[in-house]
Design a protein around this nucleic acid. Structure first.
Length: 798
RNA sequence: GCCGAAGUGGUGGAAUUGGCAGACGCGCCGGACUCAAAAUCCGGAGAGGUAACACUCGUGCGGGUUCGACCCCCGCCUUCGGCACCA
């Protein structure tokens, strides 16, 4: 039954192009966006439809409200799993991708999502990645792409570079071999140049708070100063600190094991070998392991060089330790064990002096760090000042002396943009011996991936493309001389950093999208995606968008007006769904047995949309039962074009509730309200066409097929998809008389029937008539009455 | 470890955001229909307590604020997401 109905309406929507987004700029537009999937070999699992259905509900509601809606789908198809599958099975990744996309698309279509499939895009399509390459060239031309030596994970036995994910517990996931850091010259994007704006512009956006907080913390802005420490070797060690006020407590220094001073002053250092041994050890650890707070602090003192505290003039030792990273600040810190937890632990481990410079804690027992209101002590220049005052005063002092400067720092690091892989966009640059790095002219884009015999990374750490001599050898676009192509490819993040722009104008072969189309459709009105994309993808795409704004290619400084997040759907055992755990549920099975409408209803009813939730096969039935009940009522509908007196309030209330809940991600309570409405329908003599038709419209975004079918079979005009959204009369959403709880000392002891707008005196009179209330008030004195109209009446007695 | 969330019956969750905790659904129990089962329909239930009421307890744990706390504050515990080459 459901199979025929669903097929019928999916075909009819196609024929009538019901969900086509027209570039009809006279109508108000709405642009809802969901994260496009990576088409994996496993096909869709039941987690995918959750966000798609949610915004499908919004999209369908908006169309019924008269908007021109752009809701569409695409494929983020470059990536490691496809490449690894291709290597293993000796199939071209393009073919693997094609198969996966085909399967994903069939599955998505069977869900009855109202995507405009004419705008489908694929990041691996040369007509798409032409523009990804084009944007990269613009970044390069604007000085935002540069080359830098960066460490990659290197498996010493496979002799390949590994993604972080492929390094499990410090060893190679495939062969168990040792993984080390290996320096490699990589393309970097200067996202740090946008750090300030990426934080500041969040203020005007309607992102859920936790997303904003994650973005802010990831960018990690801190205000402090850079300060020079002289050394006994006659050098200057520049440190970064957010606490210049604690300078007198700096009893030692720590530099990163990679700090250049060590090699520059090799001759003065008497324990160079020990330092080198420590550096080698640190190389094996990730930054994450290095900065862990609760691990034992390790380090080696540099023998032969001491530093001089610029405030106290005392000589202090200099250590190397892995908790100081070369990539943050200046790679050197002043250590104030009295007021920094990691410094304190290090000082304890190495028996270094701990000096109290801010009053309030017991620094011999633990670092005193929450010191914003503390008073400075043991610091001749700033004694008696508050921490805030001292920061300013000492900063002024050092700036005057010319040995320090106020500095804002960010945790955010530049974006490593090179991959030594095959399945990614080729970086469209050539290296010319006389001109340096030169971008390809636009006419040579897209630079397509060459056919190679092996997609396997080479054993020298270079991309598979590096083995393609005839592809690499080229001429310099600038001087015409002999030159080499870049053989690294872009990371998968590239294609997904601008895809929402392409949806606006997907077939344009002159530009990535016309300004007309962008002016009309952008910004995205509502972007929903997983919390797991909150830091990287969201930040990268905001960065690219801001860059495109700066060069005048897009019309808004931010891509997304609103960002919400959905929870994951877990397996029935409440573990993440995965093939290896054997708890994956395939939507095809549910659609086969119960239908797409039931699956959609269940996915929306299953729980709080923003929280993760375990799948339950059993509960699916309940949603099917609900739809069956809706179906069965069709036979009992009587004529009538207005709500009956009996149902008037209920109908208005339900329209209000459902309309509001669809806007606030509360799909579960919207469906519960419609279930309650059906329960009300059972209680009354008749339901008429107005009432039933309204229910169908409210339910349509969730269960589009069955509601279309019922709409048609009852002889309503046109398709339900083309109808306008029901409205309600606010005056008819509340009952005149309500049941109010009466409390004695905060505990509910009785109920009174009272007009909603009654005053306290009326409530009191009614309450004191109540037999049960009398039991609690008789012989007691009323000391206080709290009356909240429409809510509660509380009597405090003694 | 750091950053961000979450913890409510047997179970998924709800609670107008400080005002009757457990809506709605699943599962369970009982009944109707049936030769029987399935499906469907009707009814029941947080725990303790009572013949039935009454009453007591109850939103991860321990404190606090308030007439009143799932909701606000302080201190913990557990689980989940992210940690820069998974997407």
């Amino acid at each position: 039954m459901h199979k025929e109905i669903e097929k019928k309406w999916q075909q009819r929507w196609d024929e009538k192009q019901s969900f086509r987004a027209y570039n009809d700029y006279s109508k108000p537009k709405y642009y809802p966006l969901v994260e496009f999937p990576y088409p994996s070999g496993q096909g869709l699992h039941v987690g995918h439809p959750r966000p798609y259905t949610a915004l499908d509900i919004v999209a369908r509601k908006r169309r019924m409200e008269g908007y021109n809606v752009l809701y569409t789908m695409g494929w983020d198809a470059f990536g490691l799993p496809t490449e690894n599958y291709a290597i293993k099975n000796k199939i071209h990744p393009a073919i693997v991708t094609e198969d996966n996309v085909k399967r994903f698309k069939e599955q998505l279509r069977s869900l009855g999502l109202s995507f405009d499939w004419s705008r489908e895009i694929n990041t691996t399509d040369p007509n798409y990645y032409k523009w990804t390459q084009w944007i990269f060239i613009k970044l390069f031309e604007n000085g935002l792409a540069y080359k830098k030596e960066m460490d990659i994970n290197w498996c010493t036995s496979c002799k390949v570079g590994l993604a972080n994910e492929e390094v499990v517990g410090g060893v190679c996931e495939r062969c168990g071999g040792t993984v080390v850091k290996k320096a490699k010259s990589q393309w970097m994007l200067k996202i740090t140049e946008y750090a300030e704006r990426l934080i500041d512009d969040l203020d005007d956006l309607d992102y859920i708070e936790r997303v904003k907080a994650q973005q802010k913390n990831w960018i990690g802005k801190s205000t402090g100063m850079e300060l020079d420490f002289k050394t006994t070797s006659g050098d200057v060690l520049r440190i970064y600190t957010t606490r210049p006020d604690t300078i007198y407590g700096a009893t030692y220094m720590v530099v990163s094991p990679e700090h250049p001073l060590i090699d520059e002053r090799k001759d003065l250092i008497t324990n160079y070998d020990a330092l080198m041994a420590y550096r080698a050890e640190a190389k094996l650890k990730s930054d994450f392991e290095r900065t862990e707070l609760n691990k034992d602090k390790t380090g080696v003192v540099i023998e032969g060089i001491k530093a001089i505290n610029p405030a106290s003039g005392e000589e202090i030792p200099v250590f190397i330790s892995d908790y100081v990273l070369m990539s943050y600040g200046t790679g050197a810190i002043m250590a104030v064990p009295g007021h920094d937890t990691r410094d304190w632990e290090f000082a304890k481990a190495f028996n270094l002096p701990i000096i109290e410079v801010v009053k309030g804690g017991d620094v011999q027992n633990e670092a005193y760090t929450d010191s914003e209101e503390g008073i400075i002590v043991n610091s001749p220049l700033i004694d008696g000042l508050s921490v805030a005052e001292a920061k300013e005063s000492i900063a002024d002092h050092f700036e005057k002396l010319g040995i320090g400067v106020r500095k804002v720092n960010f945790k955010l690091r530049d974006w490593v943009f090179s991959r030594q892989r095959y399945w990614g966009e080729p970086i469209p640059l050539v290296s010319c011996p006389s001109c340096g790095w030169v971008a390809l002219p636009e006419s040579e884009l897209p630079l397509t991936l060459p056919e190679v015999a092996s997609y396997e990374p080479t054993d020298n750490g270079e991309s598979p493309l590096s083995a393609m001599t005839e592809w690499i050898e080229t001429t310099c676009p600038k001087c015409g001389g002999h030159a080499h192509r870049e053989t690294d490819t872009m990371p998968q993040w590239a294609g997904s950093s601008w895809y929402f722009l392409r949806y606006c104008d997907p077939d344009n072969d002159q530009e990535f999208a016309s300004m007309d189309a962008l002016n009309y459709w952008m910004p995205v009105d509502w972007y929903n995606g997983g919390m797991e994309h909150t830091t990287l993808h969201l930040l990268y795409s905001r960065f690219w968008h801001k860059f495109l704004f700066d060069i005048g290619k897009v019309n808004t400084k931010e891509p997304y007006l609103k960002r919400t997040s959905h929870g994951m759907i877990m397996g029935e055992n409440n573990e993440k769904m995965s093939k290896s755990r054997g708890n994956v549920v395939n939507p095809d099975d549910i659609i086969g047995e119960f239908g797409a409408d039931t699956l959609r209803t269940y996915e929306m009813f299953i729980g709080d949309f923003e929280k993760s939730v375990p799948w339950s096969d059993n509960s699916v039935k309940g949603c099917r039962r609900f739809l069956d009940r809706v179906w069965n009522f069709a036979d009992e509908v009587v004529p009538g074009d207005a709500f009956s007196k009996e149902l008037e309030i209920t109908m208005n209330k339900t329209i209000k509730k459902v309309s509001e809940d669809y806007e606030t991600l509360k799909f579960n309570t919207a469906i519960a309200a419609m279930m309650s409405l059906i329960n009300e329908f059972k209680k009354v003599e008749h339901i008429n066409r107005a009432e039933y038709g309204t229910l169908l419209k409210l339910l349509n975004p969730v269960a589009p097929h069955i509601t279309e079918e019922l709409w048609e079979s009852l002889g309503f005009e046109g398709m339900i998809t083309e109808q306008s959204w029901p409205t309600f009369d606010p005056n008819k959403t509340v009952e005149d008389v309500i049941e109010m709880a009466v409390q004695i000392n905060g505990k509910v002891r009785g109920l009174i029937s009272i007009p909603v707008d009654a005053d306290a005196a009326a409530a009191k009179a009614l309450a004191l008539e109540d037999e049960k209330i009398k039991l609690f008030t008789d012989g007691k004195t009323i000391v206080k009455e709290i009356y909240v109209p429409g809510k509660i009446f509380n009597i405090v007695v003694k």
